[in-house]
């Protein structure tokens, strides 16, 4: 600790990074929300206007689902690295220090990514099973 010489703008950089990761924890649920809205809106419009295109719609939902899962997976991986639970062994980050806050935001983002991935999968399941509009 003693040999660590903080760079003049380190505090500012750290704060900026925290602000960004605060935004980042919302990105996985936001991806889920966007996926949900697009799937439901597309299914409603296609079934009302062009029920014969349901095959294309199902493929489209499949592709969108893979895209959303990829994005959530990447966000989740970055959050996992930020949480850093393997190195620190600290699950709960109970201290109010900068490092703990940093890792806690990663922890929260990992859990949100998991629930978002599940949400995306469950939203897409009907397109897998149901082959017609009605």
């Amino acid at each position: 600790m003693a040999e660590h010489q903080p760079a003049p703008d380190e505090e500012r950089r750290e704060f900026r990074e925290e602000r960004e990761s605060l935004w980042r924890i919302t990105l996985a649920p936001a991806t889920w929300a966007v996926h949900f809205v697009i799937c439901y809106a597309a299914a409603a419009v296609v079934c009302a206007k062009a029920p014969d295109s349901i095959g294309t719609l199902r493929l489209g939902i499949g592709a969108l689902t893979l895209l959303a899962l990829g994005l959530i997976g990447w966000l989740g991986w970055r959050a996992w690295v930020q949480w850093d639970v393997r190195t620190t062994g600290d699950y709960r980050n109970p201290l109010g220090e900068a490092e703990d806050r940093h890792q806690f935001l990663g922890h929260a983002a990992v859990l949100l990514s998991v629930i978002s991935a599940l949400g995306v999968l469950y939203v897409a399941l009907p397109a897998l099973f149901i082959r017609s509009c009605g």
């Binding site: 998991v114 469950y122 009907p126 897998l128 099973f129 149901i130």
Partner: peptide, 24 residues
């Protein structure tokens, strides 16, 4: 709290959805 409900809910959802087309 995480794995079991995810798997059970996915299974039930798949089961429920799989019987829907036959009903119609």
């Amino acid at each position: 709290g995480l794995l079991l409900p995810s798997v059970v809910l996915a299974g039930l959802l798949g089961y429920g959805l799989s019987i829907m087309p036959d009903q119609r």
